[in-house]
Write a protein that binds this DNA or RNA. Structure first.
Lengths: 209, 209, 209, 209
DNA sequence: TATGAATGAGTGTTCATTCAT
DNA sequence: AATGAATGAACACTCATTCAT
């Protein structure tokens, strides 16, 4: 009665079709019939693999984040320098977004969209991703290259926001003036310099309440 | 025949109700009847002031952005120092978000959500907001305090993303560990340092393609 | 509390506006607001003179039929010859239709449309009009010029149908090939000859069951 | 994706139900839900077979006219005499109306009702029906039995009006005094005599403008 | 497993009518 | 008498989901 869901060829076809359709038209403007048509499958078939329409979106999120996270983690292991890691992370995120524009759009826009998903569905996967940034900063702080007077939680989210928004800009930009790589480097440098431990500590002396 | 829409007391009541309802349940999960009930108005009354449901969302966006932009612009005039301006901007954005959490959520989430709005409706208002950041950086570059090797367009968007994402975190964070002010200062410092013209220019020597 | 309805200037304005609007768009596609606009009157004002939308249509019918009937009756008195009367009647009907195309269309189309009106509202006025035709035939039969083997009821209705349908054709016909008068004469001749008492009685010998 | 519409059993059920409902309550007073209930089908099912409510009415018209036209044409082939043909036509029309009272009412009343249908939808089918009458008269004129001084266009419409109005009377008449056949014969005789070529030509000498 | 016709609950929108001014 | 903003019942249509084949 239960189908070996995730491995099935049809499951993959539906996931891919849904990602494409959601990215193009948005979750609420996408009909299940649209997805079925795109996947070249009958409407009813979708319900053999997914509980309902919401479940498709959540599955896309879960699966993609797993891939994203493992890819990023694996690559980051190649470096020990926090500054280098940060640059690597930014580049990786942009690359992932570029290679999977549909997925990126869905993650970025559709999921944030509705409290329905962000509240009902636990955001552990998203937090795990933020955690990666958090750890890089922490390492930098430990090694004495990053400023200690910074709240990890808030800052990692800010960095994520910057990278992600830039990625969106990058996707939507028709004529690219810069390579993705140079974009990543620019942003990385800003953050690396910004996070740096100031020798005199003067600039950031402002006491945190 | 025509009602003095924008000034009418009912128009305001509906806008406020809609903002609240959209923020709480998301645009697509909000029924027009919900908004009417929240505004203590008959369903049909809404259509005396708005063309349709979409029009309500767009009106919220237009009005709020106008207020945001003019507030920010006016306040920024009080300073001449780009670094100070940047900090001021970040603080202002957070303050606006804190004071208008419903509006902020709607702007941040619901509007980005669907290409339907971002494509059909011209994004001039959003670009005007980005332009503010852009100008601050440009002034800093002119005055020789900010690095010239930075693409304004991409970077201003990145900064916006960081600030906005942080604001979202700030809104959703139940127990605030820091004051909004200190949060703003932290992020401002990161960017101010990050954007600084490096005396040796060494760090950012990486050639932009 | 009661307004001297029928005499009021506003009442007339509304009736005329409604006739025009109904003729143009049909009863169900006409909004009360359309009529109010055409009459240059506030929506609510209409309800000072008419019970509801249906009442407007019925009032148009009643009033117009009164005018039609009295006009026709008066003119027919000028002749004593049934054949001449028939021709006169047909010409009059066409003339009335031509001079009051809006009224004619409303009577012809909108009223027949819905059992709602033809059943709920008593059709005495319509019967009175048919009665005129009926009487002409009867006179012809009495005078021995029209065939007696004809059912008055059915035939008068058939004649009405022919005249009315021709009128519709005439109204809708953009380029008139014939004068209204010649059209009337043609049809009149057909009926006059058709109704004639056949000297030999042969043609119509067919026994009526 | 596409359902074999016209042949489907459900399509027929809906058409029949709609015809009945429209005839009983009129198009605008009929709810789609009424039709669905009458057809013993879910509301949504209707939209699998018809584009919208209007489409149902138009489909009834198209189909019925096809049947009417082909039935009449086929039967008329059995005769060569124009006078006989005319009588046959009238009888057939009455028979069709009697056998399909709902269809007849819908065709007669609902369709004429609104310019919406008669304008948007091309009236070729209706013209084809009128054409049948037109041809009969023309044949009669060619054979020298019908008067040539008659406008085909106008006259065929007048005949149609007479027959159709009589049919309506016949339908609504509770107590039938005559058989349908004798009614048809009466009207046929009137027209046959009326159209006859007058040996002396005197009666119709009136010059057509 | 797969299909896709059928379902029917759900909702944006219209518009005749009312009533406070 | 006149207004026209406000009302809210009514309804066409959509689409996620089911289930007989």
């Amino acid at each position: 009665m239960e189908i070996a869901k995730n491995t099935s060829e049809k499951y993959q076809k539906i996931i891919e079709a849904a990602t494409k359709v959601f990215a193009k038209k948005g979750f609420y403007n996408s009909k299940v019939a649209d997805i079925a048509a795109e996947a070249d499958v009958a409407d009813g078939t979708i319900y053999l693999y997914f509980k309902n329409k919401d479940d498709i979106l959540i599955s896309i999120f879960e699966h993609s984040m797993d891939v994203f996270i493992s890819t990023v983690k694996k690559t980051l292991e190649t470096s020990l320098d926090p500054a280098e890691k940060l640059e690597l992370f930014i580049k990786l995120h942009l690359e992932l977004v570029e290679k999977n524009p549909y997925v990126a759009q869905v993650l970025q826009i559709e999921l944030r969209q509705s409290s329905k998903f962000m509240k009902e569905y636990d955001v552990r996967k998203f937090k795990a991703y933020l955690e990666i940034i958090s750890e890089i900063i922490q390492q930098g702080q430990s090694k004495g290259v990053f400023n200690n007077n910074l709240d990890l939680h808030v800052l990692s989210r800010a960095i994520f926001g910057a990278v992600d928004e830039m990625a969106l800009e990058w996707i939507l930009l028709k004529k690219k003036k810069y390579t993705l790589e140079s974009c990543a480097k620019q942003l990385a440098n800003v953050f690396i310099n910004g996070l740096k431990k100031c020798s005199e500590g003067e600039t950031v002396k402002t006491k945190i309440a």
